[in-house]
Write a protein that binds this DNA or RNA. Structure first.
Lengths: 346, 346
DNA sequence: AGGTAGCACTCGCCCACACCGAGTGCCAAT
DNA sequence: ATTGGCACTCGGTGTGGGCGAGTGCTACCT
């Protein structure tokens, strides 16, 4: 029984189709790959593969093309992970190492992925919720408005403007800043919720020296609420995208690429898709075609990996056509994720 | 002499071609526009217009199509500015008014422009150099690293990490923060360069109370240098883009749209293009086709306007195909610029 | 002089048609 | 289980003719 050979045939079909964009026929297969059998035999195997839903013929007298399911088995069972070349790895590490701050790291990473994979690259900023608080800055802007700036251990800065119920003088703000920082620095933002009430009391009571104003408790609560709320809305989790031009070049999209472009501009959607892929944070996950439950992306595949250590975890990914070099993409995404983890830890 | 009519003909050609994407012929013109003359006469005018380089015929027996120069005269002399509908204006003002912070304003504005013009929208953040300093925050991160956060009057936040020559204790940082803010708040960032030396002395000397550490002068200089440098590199001026999907829909690009997409991802290029268009800050400027000296964009037109008052000036714009509804785009861009100015001032 | 009518001419577009060849499924033979 | 043979399908390509929109030119009109 040719169970094994059948999978060989599938692999050959995927590889050839990815390379040539032409539906691949039985004869071409026997010529380009030395499976030791005749075209007729291949045809039988192909019939079986089609039966199993792994390949289809676009029309009666054409070769076969992999289905989503076909790519899926290819990715799961057939592709051997290809290591990046030494040059590529060097390029990654030096490029990332040159970054001057977090924004720069993310920017470089996203461009790198786009260039390595020839696809659209997506990088999520290190998640706020899980990173530790480094500093909270309060600045009063205007009469009853307070600008809250949150600085995390990873160097990420988030801001938010608050409208207050009543006037607050600068002294009160300064006092609050001191206590807030004393009490909350070092906490994971995701822990904030749990210890919030406790914090309110602790901060309002003060450390003893300065006189406590009347509305301080309210103010503290308001500020902490704001911080929590900022973190709660996922929309604050930023995603950056690069390499959209690669989409236009691929010419693999039946309809237009504009639905895909639209999807890529929707941070919220991207975030949801990425986080849904986070079954195993460390490993590379792949979503192929209709496996993406999101209509505009059913003609794309997403290859994604988590990065970062415990303190700051997020995801990166590559969005590209169904017909793509999966082993190559996976290798590139994984490599960048690893270097990224290393850089952020250092 | 039909000098006037000739321009009427040009206007008619532009309008029809924009509406239909078909090269327009003499007969069609007389039918759709009531110029009171026969097709033969129109043909003579067309010959003259072609002679003048305002229109061309794609091939011998086809209608005419406007050239860059044709669009240019249309924009300069022939298009009457169309006011937006009341509904549109209401949409703009309410949408922008709901924004919660600067990021949100910019985000809403860019989406708005994309939606109104059906083109790619571009919004430059209110320029750092010209906005006043609201607050400088210093946070030491790690041993000899200092995070400098700059907050402007418009609510914009910029950050930068410094590597220091020697250790600095928290007390020194706190002291510096106090003095720096006392001395520099309210200054235009663009003025910083001029008064820098003066500031260094002023801040180092302190206001009298706290004892001054040995390395303080150096530290002050380093920090001010960093601030100045951050501002100097234009790359820190951010540009956001939206509506790239509109490009893919337009189907007006001879080659591929990928060069255009690439260009749109290059912040530096976009910034240069935008600032080059700032002859008259308030008015709407238009660059048509080859007027953009940047090769990837020679098949596009850019409609752009400044916004903001003296304190915070920047530009917005729309990038689209040559064949577009210029009056509509101009109206939309101008309207959004005005509302934006109002919002930021209020 | 400017506008008009008529006319011959050009050419891109569309359609019908035929042909070629890659590829298939099936069957009989090994 | 594999293979060679064979009839059949059908998309892609090339050819040729007809159509029609559009033009430039010339002669004519006001």
């Amino acid at each position: 029984m040719g169970e094994d050979r059948r999978l060989d045939v599938l692999r050959a079909i995927v590889e050839d189709y990815v390379a040539t964009r032409e539906p691949v026929g039985s004869r071409a297969l026997t010529e380009r790959h030395h499976l030791g059998v005749s075209p007729a035999t291949i045809r039988n195997d192909m019939a079986a593969l089609e039966e199993a839903g792994l390949i289809v013929a676009p029309h009666t007298s054409a070769g076969r093309v992999p289905t989503d399911k076909g790519y899926r088995t290819f990715v799961d069972h057939l592709s051997q992970v290809r290591a990046l070349s030494a040059a590529e790895r060097r390029a990654i590490s030096t490029l990332l190492a040159q970054a001057v701050d977090l924004d720069d790291v993310v920017d470089r990473a996203v461009r790198l992925i786009a260039q390595l994979t020839h696809q659209v690259a997506v990088v999520q900023y290190p998640s706020l919720r899980r990173s530790a608080l480094r500093h909270v800055e309060l600045v009063s802007v205007g009469e009853r408005r307070l600008l809250v700036v949150i600085i995390t251990a990873t160097g990420r800065v988030e801001q938010r403007t608050l409208d207050l119920a009543e006037d607050v003088d600068d002294a009160a703000v300064a006092r609050l800043r001191l206590r807030l920082n004393a009490a909350a620095v070092g906490l994971r933002l995701s822990d904030l919720d749990r210890v919030r009430q406790q914090l309110v009391e602790q901060v309002s009571a003060g450390t003893g020296t300065a006189p406590t104003g009347a509305g301080d408790t309210d103010l503290v609560r308001t500020v902490l609420d704001a911080i929590a709320e900022t973190l709660a809305q996922e929309s604050e989790e930023r995603v950056v995208v690069a390499g959209t031009a690669n989409l236009a070049r691929s010419a693999d999209f039946a309809r237009s690429i504009s639905p895909v472009l639209e999807a890529l501009e929707e941070q919220v959607v991207l975030l949801r898709l990425l986080t849904e892929m986070a079954e195993d944070e460390a490993a590379v996950a792949v979503r192929i075609g209709r496996e993406n439950r999101y209509e505009p992306l059913v003609e794309t595949s997403i290859v994604s990996s988590g990065y970062g250590d415990g303190a700051a975890v997020a995801r990166i990914g590559a969005v590209g056509p169904l017909r793509q070099d999966y082993p190559g993409t996976i290798a590139a995404v994984r490599a960048v994720a690893r270097y990224l983890t290393r850089i952020l830890a250092g």
